[in-house]
Nucleic acid binder design. Structure first.
Lengths: 325, 325
DNA sequence: ACAAAATTGCGAAACGTTTCGATTTATTCA
DNA sequence: TGAATAAATCGAAACGTTTCGCAATTTTGT
């Protein structure tokens, strides 16, 4: 592999001169710089990332950690992140799985973005204590080296439940997320509040784990409830809503949007292809990513960071109809 | 940041001793090794990845390059890759975008897996010439440092077209992929052959670009054809099939599975949620990933690599019905 | 008990950069 | 025409590891 040293001897200059030249320092005259540059090109020189990382103590790399790569959800987010990071000359690297966590303390990145349930809060705080810059997207952490872009979970869940209530539904079910998930807790809290505001409304909470199977598994209980009258179901994310619809369609004769009214959360791509179209809560994942990147870069560069928040809106769909009541 | 040097002085030994101890060399007695290890733990030592990379000239990192992160498709593939790599102590890193290409010549990885149309063949061959190990999943390249796991495109496309022909359809349309895409060319060639084998069958080829919009845009021509009798459409991937169904459903009164029979390719997650269920060609993306990882590791370790191939099967769906003929 | 052999640890160089301070060369000014 | 100043280049140290060859120490065999 050709190194700076090879260029130096080819050009008959010292390695420091080569380094300065290649990095566009004004300590070197334009002519020698050009000459060195063209020799470098000719030799096909590419700097060694490891060496540069080691010496400069910066990597120009940002890591994004995801719970998994299933990516129903991640495409737009990553797009937003990447655009913003590339604009500032950082590269984006996507990782998943416990094993990869250690890349953080190994100083593989200048900063990391976390949307990964396999990190415990304490673990993240530990990294932050060691000086690593973090932006967390799936929790809230109070630490000078940690920032977050908050999703307006409360507003979203409220919107969803009030949509059902607004259609005249009074018997509300909510399928929850894992106890450990911050999003799930926030959303469920808002659900309770929204239901409580309507005296004649009732709420049944069903457990869930944010995956299709949870929605499917909640099916029987929903179906049972629906046989005693229309029911509005808020699934705390779209995956579960899709699982539920799957159950209702294949295992019951109940009609979605008439007997059972379903609303999800996230507006994943699949939601718009469901029949009937899934009502859900939408927000700009791309913007979410862009803001996260911006925050992280600010932290890295030591500029002040302001708290950001992503707003949500309701997307109507035929999975919610008009109640007969 | 605590380094090996800090441990050395804390333990009163030399840095080489620390290095040996921490790496489990038998040059160091068990007791000192343990002592050093516990000091390291206490100090919260984590090795510096850049330094290790530089010195050992290996990174234990494998890069996967994707055209984009939209990931309708990638989830399972990445899962298969990651499992296999982690089992062998490698970490997986996902990259996308032209900018990130340079990570390859910068020696960021021990090898890379390419499923990314933004790489030109010549570019990849250039990297291979420089000694970088590559597995390509979206093309075929003849180079000692490049291997591929072939998808059986020919078999898949044949299966798809024969499925339509088998249902009595004689007027076949095929929506193609980008000219530059190897997969698309292979599939289309097989389509032509399959149609030619049935004398009374006719084929119309429509252009496409492997995205939903292409399918949608092909809609009017398909609809026109369908008004003169049933037509069987093979979309060279599911995305386009979904776009086409979208058009047919929202812009025409033609019924999918009766007037227009649609089959896709890839069996992406969305396919099974389409109404009617999209008939398509399925193959194990997870296995595809696992084999790619295995090949790459073999190349890295200098073991002989055997050519692998992924087999395909037809998934029936109501998007193809029985022709009246 | 002593040399030979084995065990355990150490010193230093190297990986490929960047960058500080010093040195050489060219330019300016009186 | 020198001395003073500015411009261009160089040498060497450093980043944090690994690893080779050597030195010191312990063990073994007789």
């Amino acid at each position: 592999m050709v190194s700076i040293k090879d260029i130096a001897s080819a050009a008959g200059v010292s390695i420091s001169t080569v380094s300065y030249a290649l990095n566009g320092s004004d300590r070197i005259t334009k002519e020698t710089a050009d000459r060195i540059q063209s020799i470098a090109d000719e030799l096909g020189y590419v700097p060694n990332r490891a060496a540069r990382m080691l010496k400069k103590r910066e990597t120009m790399l940002v890591g994004v950690f995801l719970t998994d790569f299933s990516g129903n959800f991640y495409g737009d987010l990553l797009f937003g992140l990447k655009e913003e990071l590339n604009r500032r000359d950082y590269d984006l690297i996507v990782c998943s799985g416990r094993r990869s966590h250690r890349m953080i303390p190994e100083r593989t990145f200048d900063g990391a973005i976390i949307l990964d349930a396999t990190f415990a809060d304490a673990e993240l705080l530990g990294y932050a204590d060691r000086g690593h810059k973090l932006v967390v997207l799936d929790r809230e952490l109070d630490h000078p080296n940690v920032n977050q872009v908050l999703l307006d979970n409360k507003a979203g869940a409220t919107l969803a439940v009030e949509h059902l209530l607004g259609r005249g539904l009074r018997r509300i079910c909510a399928i929850g997320g894992p106890e450990s998930a911050y999003d799930a807790r926030q959303r469920m809290r808002a659900v309770r509040q929204a239901v409580e505001r309507v005296p004649e409304a009732s709420l049944a909470e069903l457990p869930g784990a944010f995956d299709k199977a949870s929605g499917y598994d909640a099916g029987p209980r929903i179906a049972e409830a629906a046989r005693e009258g229309q029911v509005g179901v808020f699934c705390l994310n779209d995956e579960m809503a899709i699982g539920l619809c799957d159950y209702l369609r294949t295992r019951t004769t109940l009609k979605i949007g008439r007997d059972v009214h379903v609303v999800g959360y996230d507006n994943i791509e699949l939601a718009q292809y469901m029949q009937p179209r899934l009502a859900t809560i939408d927000y700009s994942k791309r913007k979410w990513g862009a803001l996260a990147a911006e925050q992280l870069l600010k932290m890295i560069e030591g500029r002040p960071v302001e708290q950001e928040r992503i707003y949500v809106r309701l997307v109507e769909g035929q999975s919610v109809g008009q109640s007969g009541l």
